[in-house]
Simulated scan of single mutants.
Amino acid sequence: MPELVRLLTEDGERIEHPDYDIDLTAEEVRGLYRDLVLVRRFDTEAVALQRQGELGLWASLLGQEAAQVGSGRALAAGDMAFPSYREHGVAWCRGVDPVALLGMFRGVSHGGWDPREHNFHLYTIVIGAQTLHAVGYAMGVQRDGDDAAVIAYFGDGASSQGDVSEAFTWASVFNAPVVFFCQNNQWAISAPAERQSRIPLYRRASGFGFPGVRVDGNDVFACLAVTRKALKDAREGRGPTLVEAFTYRMGAHTTSDDPARYRTAEESQAWRARDPIARVRAYLAGNRLAGPEFFEAVEAEADLLGKDVRRRCLELPDPGPAAMFEHIHSGRHALLEEESAQYAAYLDGFTL
């Protein structure tokens, strides 16, 4: 395996890296641990809701919490994030209400949150399309003379899409202030990573003329440090960076998938031993930065979060039929208004 940036071992031991260093206070580390635990608890509850018929589908992030929380906490307030459909941890870091995420998978909203309020774009289901959106936004930021950066999230499978290659080309040629954050969880549904590329994914960046780096995606410290530097480079005019977070999808691709059909139990078990939450807990406990009371309090908060999102999810109102015409255009649209009126008249024909 190519060398990857790591700052925290699987046993919770802090190590140094010559190019990436980070100085975190005990409070900040405790905050990262809390993020990881709460994000996982929310994800677990969402899976349960889907299994009970309350969501149409769910894309779990189990195992990828460190990649998302680390990169999400590296973002400045003015930076814009473009997610795919699995970045629940980044959404958490950007202050998006978890229930807003559930609303989309429950089928009661088109998106559920205002991208401008959180600087977190709506989920993108079309694989890889968000990378082009991100580059276009970054070029706009560049032309406006703003000092913000942009980050685009995608998976190893999306790296094979033409949209991603086009995004790389545009970002490189125009030196756009964008970070491409690839969560390589090693399985594009049932296709393994070796079916996606004959070289490590981060090395693809060199062919487009910008740097790439592979980071331990289960190390929240390293993900934070590497993403923070890449965003800083973007803001300071040094152009794009490709970050490959080497991690593992512990669960299914979505709740409609059965990973046992294409990967071994031994492989999954080996990666569970590299749990991103366990290593931060080991670091905190081993350095006496947190005791049993802290860990118990976080678990209690996680339980409350799970109960809260479940209750509020079940309380989400079903939209009326005419809701399909809402939030399509930013302003009035004559054809849409005509179609909406025709549909309303059609529905009125069923009134007793």
Score class of each variant (00 low, 15 high):
L7C: 00
D11I: 08
D11A: 15
G12D: 03
E16P: 00
E16M: 06
H17K: 00
P18F: 01
P18M: 05
D21H: 13
I22C: 08
D23C: 09
G31R: 05
D35G: 02
D35N: 13
L38N: 03
E45F: 11
A48W: 12
R51D: 08
L55Y: 04
L62M: 11
Q64R: 00
Q68C: 02
G72S: 01
A76K: 13
D79T: 07
F82I: 07
P83A: 05
R86K: 05
G89W: 08
V96S: 08
D97L: 10
L102A: 11
G107N: 11
G111T: 13
D114C: 04
P115S: 10
R116E: 15
Q130E: 13
H133I: 01
A134G: 11
G140D: 08
D147K: 15
A149H: 10
G157A: 14
S159H: 05
S160Y: 05
Q161R: 13
G162T: 14
A167L: 13
T169K: 07
T169E: 07
W170I: 14
S172P: 07
V173T: 02
F174E: 06
P177G: 01
Q183P: 01
A188V: 11
A188N: 06
S190M: 14
L201K: 02
Y202K: 06
R203T: 15
F210V: 08
D216I: 00
V220E: 01
V220D: 02
K229A: 12
P240Q: 10
P240D: 09
R249A: 08
T254E: 00
T255M: 03
D257C: 06
Q269Y: 04
A273S: 12
A282V: 01
A290Q: 02
A302E: 04
G306L: 04
D318H: 14
G320H: 08
H327Y: 09
H329S: 11
H329N: 13
H329A: 09
G331H: 15
R332A: 15
R332N: 12
R332H: 14
H333T: 05
L336G: 09
E339V: 08
E339G: 00
A344G: 11
D348Y: 06
F350K: 09
